[in-house]
Design a binder for these strands. Structure first.
Lengths: 362, 362
DNA sequence: TGACCTTGCAGAAACGTACCTGTCAACGGG
DNA sequence: CCCGTTGACAGGTACGTTTCTGCAAGGTCA
């Protein structure tokens, strides 16, 4: 009977809703919504008045209600591969941190926020969050997460060229083959005769492409491949593998390490075997870390440009979400950057004897 | 007129809703909801049947609708300080990555996901995501973000003891004063006569507490403070500051660096000045990075145990969200760990002669 | 003076779920 | 035979928005 009378239970428990604002401003809900969202045909006076009342009441629109109504949540998934229970690994620290940082910035700049999600197919977490789209880092072939997302009609952009026929919306990657070939040529130019590789045992695209490129290069120049593979997610295995590589009878005189910590691991191993860098051993590793600028000697690194990748991935994803007909291609190759430092600099002639340490000679 | 007749437009565009499942299973919406959520009093047969139909239709409950109804989103904010446009900095890389990793794992294990948010007061992003609570990393005094969140009635747990009277629900931190004092004593024990500090110019709690502790220690032992401060968010400034510190007329014979890259920076600076570590200069820095295990020489580091902090913070937050009367205190101090390596090991006899290493003497 | 458009706003229908409040049958006990 | 109880479900409302549709009031033009 007195249904039309109920006074909204006096603004209910806590937060003010749009109804409260409407009542306080003496207008309708529609008017409040339009005023706050800059829509509709309202005179500026009304708009200002509503905004002022909303501010006074401390009104914050309910994200859940808005999402339910509009179908857009403003959330982007950032899916990272997991090893065991842990998302991303030691070996990916700097890369991931840089990439995530750039992605976060780019998303924020366009009004989106990032949700970190594991690549495991734990439904309960995935289905508990309303995503507008997802960034997948280095998806494995036939990734169940990606398939599920695509099935739901969500745009998926991949960091790393998708293996197989994974139906992603777009992807961004480096040209890993070209990068490896470039490094090998660089090392050969610096005088390397036998170049070794420190690689991983996992089957992700990065490891696979890089290793394949190395093997092809070896075949082309007629060098026997010299490499050690180890489980890259194990923080200790790298040092052991580096040691093993330098302990081989066919010890390489130059090494490229695919993972971030390989530089220090190889440097330590070289010291154990009394090898001087770069005189006896040329060194390059793939890393985003700044420490290699100040090691003794500084180590040449390959940067995969995670900032640019993180930014590009997010831009592509948001373009897809918003239906923007981007003029960017949906497959972007970001160039890598070889930062040449002492560890791979043309060594002094093989035959000459050089003093073990001469700080003046810098 | 045929209003009661409308057949739900034939399962609408795309996704199946709970209504579609109910229709397909020949039961009511309530029954579907109860069956899937394990509530109500339903015979197992019905429960199974509903679940099966839901699976067949590929039904995924709408996160937005559930959030709107229940008031819980399953999302936790991870708020990071921003410097300019970028969230977190170079100097915090390893710490943040470890911390975020542990936090992500812990949240996931309890069915929550993490949203990365900037500490800027950009309302539009904050209000667009429905959070159940927030982790704030090292909030500054009078942080507007924290105040706003608390005003909304959301639990806020802080990584880092909140400055001033910031009304957080709980916090987790190291005992930074104790850590610094421990390191200074450790260096003094190793023979240091004048210990320098490499610190930051920012006003965050970590920097402030650590610097204060250093100054107090100096006063206590009667040493003149020798320190250089630099803007820690600038990736290049550290090297310059390290150089400046070692170029001083009152050059210290031991240095503690508050930030992660200080180790390599100080090592490089020491080399430039022909100082041997640890013989001429003892070195310790605060870092989570593994590279310091394999530098030449290996550098003693202080670990703030970001894994434990990340886990603890999330546990406290979720306990608060779920109203669990946790037996954990709401103010937790996580012990730091000093990983002693060569760079701070008792140098060759200055006055007393003691064996460089005596593992028996424990 | 209508016919017609514009302005300024209100009503009400979704969005998809969770849960409170029935309803109806079966059943057991007095 | 009646009444209370319990099991198994259905109806309907509310969550807080956005937005489509509608409707007066006022102005313009033929």
């Amino acid at each position: 009977m007195s249904r039309a009378e109920t006074p909204r239970r006096g603004s209910r428990s806590g937060r003010a809703g749009i109804r409260d604002v409407a009542a306080a401003a003496g207008v309708s809900i529609t008017t409040v919504s339009d005023a706050l969202n800059g829509k509709g045909r309202l005179p500026d006076a009304t708009r200002r008045h509503v905004r002022e009342v909303a501010d006074r009441l401390g009104y914050r629109p309910s994200a859940a209600a808005r999402t339910l109504r509009t179908g857009k949540s403003g959330l982007i998934g950032l899916t990272v591969t997991t090893y065991g229970d842990e998302p991303f690994t030691f070996t990916e620290f700097a890369y991931f941190a840089e990439m995530a940082r750039a992605a976060t910035s780019a998303a924020l700049a366009r009004g989106y926020a990032l949700v970190i999600l594991p690549a495991t197919s734990r439904h309960d977490v995935w289905s508990n969050v309303a995503l507008d789209g997802t960034v997948v880092i280095d998806p494995s072939d036939q990734d169940p997460v990606v398939s599920e997302l695509v099935r739901q009609g969500l745009p998926v952009v991949s960091d790393g060229r998708p293996a197989g026929a994974l139906p992603v919306t777009a992807w961004v990657d480096n040209d890993h083959e070209a990068a490896v070939l470039g490094i090998l040529d660089h090392l050969a130019d610096a005088g390397a005769r036998r170049i070794g590789l420190l690689t991983g045992t996992s089957t992700d695209t990065y490891t696979h492409l890089s290793t394949t490129a190395y093997l092809r290069w070896c075949e082309r120049v007629g060098q026997d491949p010299v490499y050690e593979a180890y489980p890259a997610h194990d923080p200790c295995a790298g040092a052991v593998a580096a040691d093993r590589l330098l302990a081989r009878p066919d010890r390489p005189d130059a090494v490229y390490g695919l993972f971030d910590p390989n530089g220090t691991d190889l440097l330590a191993a070289a010291r154990r075997y009394g090898l001087r860098v770069p005189d006896d051993l040329l060194l390059v590793c793939c890393s985003e870390s700044a420490v290699y600028a100040t090691t003794e000697p500084p180590i040449t690194t390959l940067s995969l440009k995670p900032r640019r990748i993180g930014t590009a991935v997010v831009q592509l994803l948001i373009d897809a979400i918003e239906g923007v007909e981007s003029d960017q291609p949906v497959e972007q190759v970001i160039p890598t950057e070889l930062i040449v430092r002492t560890s791979s600099e043309r060594r002094s002639p093989r035959t000459t004897v050089s003093p073990p340490r001469s700080p003046e000679e810098g």
